[in-house]
Structure formats: structure tokens, C-alpha cells
Design a protein around this nucleic acid. Structure first.
Length: 573
DNA sequence: GCCGTTTTCGGCCCGACTGTTTTCAGTCG
């Protein structure tokens, strides 16, 4: 019983209570409990009730529920709720614009239990018969259903990584002599993954028996000696492929993809008188002795190419660059010296400045900017000018104590709908760094949103444009605006563009970040952490940066603090 | 459901936006 499963059940309880219009604070307690479980560094299932109760936010009831889940796999309270409401209504809740009240009304008055039920009702015009619903709401629901369809079956990268890691560890334990590696979109670092592809080289066929018997496996959809497919709880498909050790490199290459990259590579092989498949690179007409196959590097080398990092294998020019020996030296996580976007208990973060600084120091960072929210974000307890300056004074006073990491006093300042900033210029000027972000008014049209962002960039105290496109992966498209124009304006004014590492944002995307690099804009990779554990997310932003062909030189928070400060827009001549 | 304690009860981040209204309910963040 891992923490994620505990979190899933607590989260479902919260959702079900919400649909039932139960006490909002009780709902919050369960939701908070789910978040605690998902982010707790230790296995909750190994803690007794007294130890669980020591965790802030876990009281008598939640401790008992977590113990029950750990011991029995579920909680009676959860089962009772599911007896009142079918679990399929939880799918409705995931639709953009559909909340618990709507779900409750749909279920109670129209008997809608599933997404299919809802789609039929919306098409038939039955949804508008409900109090408070009209034609627009119906259209909204149909659009949300369509968006969901586009994303169906895909999962966020970290979620996929977590399940894959569980499977890989398990397979390695059952095949100690073999090498087991995640391949496919996960190895390429794609922002979302459709399935989990695993490669085992040098394992006995019996590994397949272990694979299909894994406790997370819900259904076995294919079972062979070299390839098996299963459905994993949580909606993942996972494939395991077995190859001989001498084919490991070729198989890694083949199963990592992308498809387009592989087609181009095989085409190149043919042109050079070879044949490339998952078993090796062979001279045409001779399948017996491979030219390369054990090491992936050798496959590329035999084709006259430098080894290409998996993140680049998307047919975006990597083969030409590899042939020209001109591939970039990609950014590494250890290159990052600073993190420029994080929140504390001053607004909606979970930890105080000192705790966040300590976690960043432990993560090996040399400096951080503390950037709590500005006043427009009332739900996050955003700061007005007075609080912003007082907070900055506290941050600087902690910094002055010398705590082994340097602190910058910043703010994440809202960009208002007209493009003005949420805090007065003299306040922004008094800080070390300002991240400016859009958090509301997403429904402006292309022209309005472009003007809004361009106007924000004109403010001389804006140093970084935070999560520039506002997208939420698998949930919300970027707001419409002229991305190239905004990138150009940022580049011209010396404003850095953020790669936000929140796992459902990853914003800028790889494609836009690469555009930014090509247009000469500078970038930063920032965690947007609201808790200590979220600093780990920097890893995902680095993957985006790598997929964007970024090197350390393109990302200014790789610089030592004194040099970095000179690169901030506010400190430029 | 959790928390604190001068309080074992009473408080718990709440404003913007939308679509439905005729003064508000629901959703989002």
C-alpha cells in the first residue's frame, strides 16, 4: 500500500463528500490529507496511529482511516460513500467547468452516471432543463467532453514516471542480472505519456510471469515470451519487452522512438547499406553478424552520428545536428544554482521561508527567490504593498543571518486584465526580483491577451514572465495570444521567460522554450514550489529545457548569484 | 475533520468570473 493509493482514496472521499454538499471544512481536511499522503517522504502504511497523528493536518479520524486503508486496502467510510454515489460520477468532476453541485444535480435530477450519459443529455438539450443551466452551459460541457477526449489515456509525466519506477524496481528485483529500462515517451521526457514501455535485456523469460502478476496489474491484454501488455490500476497501459543482451542498445534505440526519428534513422541506415531493427544494425542481406547492437552509442556512431539524447529524438533537426557534430550540450539538473519562484506560508505555500530555504540548500541550490502572491490573488491570501515590503524585509533579515543559501526578496505579481501590475512600481522597485504572471481573466481574446502581456513586459521592474501561456496539461489550453510577439518583446527588454516546473504546467512548453532560445530570449527554470517536496519538480522543468535544446548558457539561473543578478532586467543598463 | 488553548467550541484564505439570473449559485484558482 503506497502513499499514492492512500492519497487516491482520501481524495475520492473528499470528492464524494463535496458532491453530497457535506461540511466544506471536512472536505478540506480530507483533501489536505490526500495531499499530505501524496507528498510524504515515508511510507504512511508503516506508521502507527500515534505517529500518523503527529503529522500536522492528520488528526484522530484521518489517522484511523489511513491505518484502515493500509491494513485492509480501503476504508469503510469510502465504501459507504460509493454505495450512495457511483464511482463513475467522479469522472464528471474532472471536466472543466463541472463542479460538485453540477454533478449532484445531473445525477439527482437526470440520473446521469457516466460521461456518455452526460454527452447524450447535453446533445438532447436535457441539461438546460435543470435550474441554473442553459444552452451555454450545455455547450461548455460538450466542449469539456471534447477536450477530455483529446487527452484520453494520457498521463502527466511524473505520474507515469512514478508507476514506471515501481514496475522497474520490481522487475529488477526479479531479474538481478538483467538491465531494465523505461523507454518510449517516458525516456524522451514527453510532458504527457500514453503508456509505459519497459525494456529488459538479458532477463529470463520467467520475468514475464512476474510482470503480469504484479499487484498493480488489473488486466493482462497480451502475454508472450518477448512482449506482454497489461493494464495498470489508474488507467495506464504498460508493455514489457525482452531482448538478448547483445541487442540492448538497438532495442533501446528502437523502443525509445519517436516513431518519426526511427523512420528517419532506418532510412539513413538503408542509404548507408545497412538494415536497422530492434536487434541490431546489420549489413544489408546479412542478418547474422550485427555491426552494432549492444550499445546505443555504437548504433548512432555506425550511422555517422553523434549519440542523440532521448529528449531530442522528435525529428526537430537532431539528425542533421548529430551528423554535423553540432548537438547542444544540454542543461543538467546539477547546472541549476538558483530557483526563482516559490511560495511560503505568507500566502498559499505550506512552509515558511526558513524551511523552503533549507530544502533548497539540501537540494544543492546556492540561491532562491521567495516570490509569494500579490493581492489580486485573494484566494491565496495575496499580499498588498505593505505586506510585500514587510515580507521582503523578513526575507532579507533571514538572508543576513547567513544560512548557507542566499535569499532574494521577490514577488509573483499578478498581471491585471489591462496589463498593469497588481502592485505599485515603487514597491516592485524595492524588491530583488519580480515574476509577473496571469492568474485570472483567461477568456480575453487573442488581441486583448497579447496587448495585456506586452504591456506587462513594458514595466521596468518585471524580471521574469511566469508560466507564460497559462496552460494546464490535460485540462486547459494556453490562453490565446501571439506567443512569438511576446517572446520577442521579452527578449528585447531583457525579461526572462519561465519554464515553470509545476507538473501540470511545464509552461513554457518545449516547443515554445526552443522558440524563445532561437529568438534570443533568456529563460529560467523555476519550481513554483508551494512545499519543500515540490522542489523536486525542478527535474521536470530541466527535461522540458533539454527537449527545447537549451544549454546552461540559455538558462540564467545556472549563473553564480552575483553574475545572475547583473543579468536581471532591473539591473541592466 | 483539524486545530488551539484567555476559547474543548468555534473558526477554518475568499474574490473574480460566468451564466444564470432579477440578486445569485457555481466554479476556479
Amino acid at each position: 500500500m503506497d502513499n499514492l493509493e492512500v492519497a487516491r482514496i482520501l481524495g475520492e472521499i473528499a470528492d464524494l463528500l463535496e458532491i453530497k454538499s457535506d461540511n466544506p471544512f471536512k472536505i478540506r481536511a480530507y483533501r489536505n490529507g490526500a495531499e499530505i499522503a501524496a507528498n510524504h517522504p515515508h511510507q504512511l502504511a508503516t506508521l502507527d496511529e500515534a505517529s500518523l497523528r503527529e503529522i500536522p493536518g492528520i488528526g484522530k479520524d484521518l489517522a484511523a482511516r489511513i491505518r484502515e486503508i493500509a491494513d485492509t486496502g480501503d476504508a469503510a467510510f469510502h465504501r459507504d460513500l460509493l454505495a450512495e454515489l457511483p464511482s463513475t460520477v467522479l469522472d464528471l468532476l474532472a471536466l472543466q467547468g463541472v463542479g460538485p453541485k453540477t454533478v449532484a444535480a445531473l445525477y439527482r435530477d437526470l440520473g446521469i452516471r457516466t460521461l456518455d450519459d452526460l454527452e447524450r443529455a447535453a446533445i438532447d438539450g436535457r441539461v438546460r432543463s435543470l435550474r441554473g443551466m442553459g444552452a451555454k452551459k450545455e455547450a461548455l460541457i460538450l466542449r469539456a467532453l471534447e477536450e477530455r477526449r483529446q487527452h484520453a489515456g494520457r498521463h502527466l509525466l511524473p505520474e507515469t514516471d512514478e508507476v514506471a519506477t515501481t514496475l522497474v524496481d520490481y522487475l529488477r528485483a526479479h531479474a538481478p542480472g538483467a538491465t531494465v529500462t523505461p523507454v518510449g515517451s517516458l525516456r524522451r521526457g514527453c510532458e504527457t505519456c500514453g503508456d509505459i514501455d519497459l525494456l529488459a535485456a538479458g532477463a529470463d523469460v520467467s520475468l514475464m510471469d512476474h510482470f503480469v502478476a504484479h499487484p498493480l496489474v488489473e488486466r493482462v491484454t497480451g502475454r508472450g515470451d518477448t512482449k506482454s501488455s497489461v493494464l495498470i490500476r489508474g488507467g495506464f497501459q504498460a508493455d514489457l519487452r525482452l531482448v538478448a543482451p547483445e541487442s540492448r542498445g538497438a532495442a533501446l534505440q528502437y523502443f525509445t522512438g519517436s516513431k518519426a526519428h526511427n523512420i528517419a534513422l532506418r532510412d539513413r541506415a538503408i542509404g548507408l547499406g545497412f538494415k536497422l531493427n530492434e536487434y541490431g544494425l546489420f549489413r544489408a542481406g546479412d542478418d547474422t553478424a550485427p555491426v552494432a547492437g549492444e550499445r546505443e552509442e555504437d548504433v548512432y556512431a555506425a550511422l555517422g552520428l553523434d549519440w542523440i539524447a532521448p529528449e531530442l529524438r522528435e525529428m526537430r533537426g537532431e539528425i542533421d545536428a548529430a551528423q554535423a557534430r553540432a548537438l547542444p550540450r544540454l542543461l543538467n539538473l546539477t547546472d541549476l544554482r538558483g530557483d526563482l519562484h516559490m511560495h511560503t506560508t505568507e500566502t498559499d505555500g505550506k512552509e515558511n521561508v526558513l524551511a523552503m530555504a533549507g530544502a533548497a540548500r539540501e537540494a544543492g541550490l546556492e540561491y532562491i527567490a521567495v516570490t509569494d502572491h500579490s493581492k489580486s490573488l485573494a484566494m491565496a491570501n495575496g499580499m498588498d504593498e505593505r505586506r510585500t515590503l514587510a515580507h521582503a524585509a523578513r526575507i532579507r533579515s533571514i538572508d543576513a543571518q547567513g544560512i548557507g543559501i542566499r535569499l532574494l526578496a521577490g514577488v509573483e505579481c499578478d498581471i491585471k486584465p489591462d496589463g498593469s501590475l497588481d502592485l505599485a512600481d515603487d514597491c516592485l522597485a524595492a524588491l530583488d526580483l519580480v515574476v509577473a504572471s496571469v492568474h485570472s481573466g483567461f477568456n480575453q481574446d487573442h488581441r486583448q491577451m497579447t496587448d495585456r502581456l506586452l504591456r506587462a513586459l513594458e514595466n521596468p521592474y518585471v524580471d521574469v514572465l511566469g508560466h507564460p501561456t497559462g496552460r494546464l496539461l490535460l485540462r486547459r489550453q494556453p490562453y490565446p495570444f501571439d506567443v512569438a510577439a511576446v517572446i520577442d518583446a521579452a527578449g528585447a527588454r531583457g525579461v526572462a521567460l519561465e519554464i515553470n516546473c509545476q507538473v501540470n504546467r511545464l509552461d513554457l512548453s518545449d516547443v515554445h522554450a526552443r522558440l524563445a532560445k532561437e529568438r534570443g530570449a533568456r529563460l529560467v527554470v523555476s519550481s513554483d514550489a508551494h512545499s519543500r517536496s515540490a522542489l523536486r519538480w525542478l527535474r521536470w522543468g530541466v527535461l522540458v529545457a533539454r527537449r527545447a535544446w537549451l544549454t546552461g548558457e540559455n538558462v540564467i539561473n545556472t549563473l553564480p548569484l552575483d553574475v545572475f543578478r547583473g543579468q536581471l532586467r532591473r539591473n541592466q543598463a
